[in-house]
Amino acid sequence: MANKETGNIRGPGPGRPVGSVNKITGSMKEMILQAFDKAGGADWLAKQADENPVAFMGLLGKLLPSDIALSGGVALQPITEIRRIIVDPRATVEQEQTP
């Protein structure tokens, strides 16, 4: 029986495979990579990090969460102690440093 809305007999087709890149997205990514190579590649990017740190950190924020892959060399220590120290706000720096 035909679908009245689409006219398909068996239903919708298979569509694009899961995880495949959109044609426009793929071509834009290729153009951006070509422009990056022409600008100087990693050396240019390091220069941008020094000259425009806000923009560079924004770029890292967009890229790193999806690209970080930790090797076995990182050992994280759990927090085992939390201290609260009450300090007199009227005390001077010299008074705080004396035992």
Rank of each mutant, 00 (worst) to 15 (best):
79 I>D: 02
27 S>Y: 04
59 L>R: 08
75 A>Y: 12
77 Q>P: 05
63 L>Q: 03
85 I>S: 03
59 L>K: 08
53 P>H: 02
60 L>E: 00
54 V>H: 11
27 S>T: 04
58 G>Y: 09
90 R>T: 14
49 A>V: 07
34 Q>F: 09
38 K>Q: 06
50 D>F: 15
54 V>Y: 13
77 Q>W: 09
39 A>S: 08
55 A>R: 10
73 G>A: 13
68 I>R: 11
61 G>M: 04
75 A>L: 13
47 K>W: 05
81 E>S: 12
75 A>W: 09
67 D>S: 15
76 L>V: 12
57 M>V: 12
83 R>H: 08
30 E>S: 08
49 A>F: 08
40 G>C: 01
50 D>R: 15
71 S>H: 08
45 L>A: 08
80 T>C: 06
44 W>N: 11
56 F>V: 02
79 I>N: 05
29 K>D: 04
32 I>R: 04
27 S>H: 07
56 F>H: 02
53 P>W: 04
64 L>C: 08
85 I>L: 11
34 Q>A: 14
69 A>G: 07
84 R>H: 14
57 M>P: 00
54 V>G: 00
46 A>K: 03
56 F>I: 00
78 P>M: 05
89 P>F: 03
79 I>K: 15
67 D>M: 15
44 W>Y: 09
56 F>R: 00
70 L>F: 15
57 M>C: 10
37 D>K: 06
79 I>L: 14
26 G>E: 13
50 D>Q: 14
50 D>K: 14
60 L>M: 14
28 M>V: 09
33 L>P: 01
56 F>Y: 09
37 D>L: 07
30 E>P: 02
44 W>T: 04
38 K>T: 00
50 D>V: 10
41 G>V: 01
26 G>T: 03
61 G>R: 06
72 G>L: 10
63 L>E: 05
62 K>M: 09
33 L>G: 02
65 P>R: 01
88 D>R: 04
35 A>F: 11
87 V>P: 04
28 M>R: 10
43 D>A: 13
66 S>T: 08
58 G>M: 13
80 T>W: 02
52 N>M: 11
38 K>Y: 03
31 M>F: 06
38 K>I: 03
69 A>Y: 11
69 A>I: 12
